[in-house]
Amino acid sequence: MEIFQIIILSLIQGITEFLPISSSAHLILPHQVLGWSDQGLAFDVAVHFGSLLAVVTYFRKDVWSLICDGLGGFRSGQFSDDGRLAWLIVLATIPAGLVGLTFKGFIETHLRSSAVIATTTILFGALLWWADVRGTRREGLAQLTWKKALMIGAAQALALIPGTSRSGITMTAGLMLGMKREAAARFSFLMSIPVIALSALLLTLELLEAPAVDWSSILLGVVLSGISAYLCIHFFLQFISRIGMAPFAIYRFILGGALFLMIWMA
């Protein structure tokens, strides 16, 4: 890819990975509007790794505490709040892992069309708005139970369908279960760490069988996606309690409508 394409796609991936607006819906636009070719496996690895570095760096203190308290509680049988949260994140990761391994081929073959992405962008945008309006928004992470964590994890598995948005569907599930906006967002971001790590690992294993890789483009993709994702997480958590989910839902309606318009005009 040209440098300009790398910059644009890296920023798109970094910004949309953690906002509830679907990264896959945005990455299809350059292809549809500008006729850009698919970015390729190596670039996918780069931007996933950049997003992973961003979320781990931003929550570095939390991640360290979750690991230490989670392992310590497992050995002693006495769990602190962070130790308990660590194992809830592990539990919530299982559904997406199982569905991903089982249906990865089917999803990539049958559910990556523009029509599917446009439909899920609008449908899950409406569900996000409804959950934000109807949710009680009373509970924090301390009130999260294993049943609710598993339900949010099951919702995360739906994000394997392009256009759904991993962060969007997990925040939607959290809000529907009575979580506060910031708590739902924070749990969604922490849940993303094992999922993105596993995804990056699988892509890397596939990449090892690929031909020569342009490492300068890889490095640029990692840096740009990582910086943009870090800033996105920071500002989203700063403002989400005040602005709510309505702006993101409306944006999804516009984006989905634009995709349907492009399909109709094609």
Score class of each variant (00 low, 15 high):
residue 1 M to Q: 05
residue 1 M to R: 09
residue 2 E to Q: 00
residue 2 E to A: 12
residue 6 I to V: 06
residue 8 I to E: 11
residue 12 I to G: 03
residue 12 I to F: 10
residue 13 Q to C: 08
residue 18 F to Y: 04
residue 20 P to R: 00
residue 21 I to Q: 04
residue 25 A to S: 14
residue 32 Q to I: 05
residue 34 L to R: 08
residue 41 L to H: 09
residue 43 F to Q: 13
residue 46 A to D: 04
residue 53 L to C: 14
residue 57 T to S: 15
residue 60 R to H: 00
residue 60 R to Y: 14
residue 70 G to V: 00
residue 73 G to I: 01
residue 81 D to C: 13
residue 87 W to L: 06
residue 88 L to K: 12
residue 90 V to D: 03
residue 90 V to W: 00
residue 96 A to V: 11
residue 99 V to S: 03
residue 114 S to N: 10
residue 116 V to E: 04
residue 118 A to G: 13
residue 131 A to Y: 03
residue 134 R to A: 06
residue 134 R to H: 11
residue 134 R to V: 08
residue 139 E to H: 14
residue 140 G to W: 09
residue 142 A to G: 13
residue 144 L to R: 09
residue 145 T to K: 05
residue 145 T to I: 07
residue 145 T to F: 04
residue 146 W to V: 11
residue 152 I to S: 07
residue 161 I to Q: 02
residue 162 P to Q: 03
residue 165 S to G: 12
residue 171 M to D: 01
residue 175 L to H: 08
residue 188 S to F: 07
residue 189 F to K: 11
residue 193 I to D: 13
residue 205 L to K: 15
residue 205 L to E: 09
residue 206 E to L: 08
residue 210 A to C: 13
residue 213 V to S: 10
residue 218 I to L: 12
residue 222 V to E: 00
residue 225 S to C: 04
residue 236 F to I: 01
residue 237 L to T: 04
residue 237 L to M: 03
residue 248 F to S: 01
residue 248 F to W: 01
residue 251 Y to A: 07
residue 251 Y to C: 05
residue 255 L to C: 11
residue 255 L to R: 13
residue 257 G to A: 10
residue 258 A to W: 14
residue 260 F to P: 13
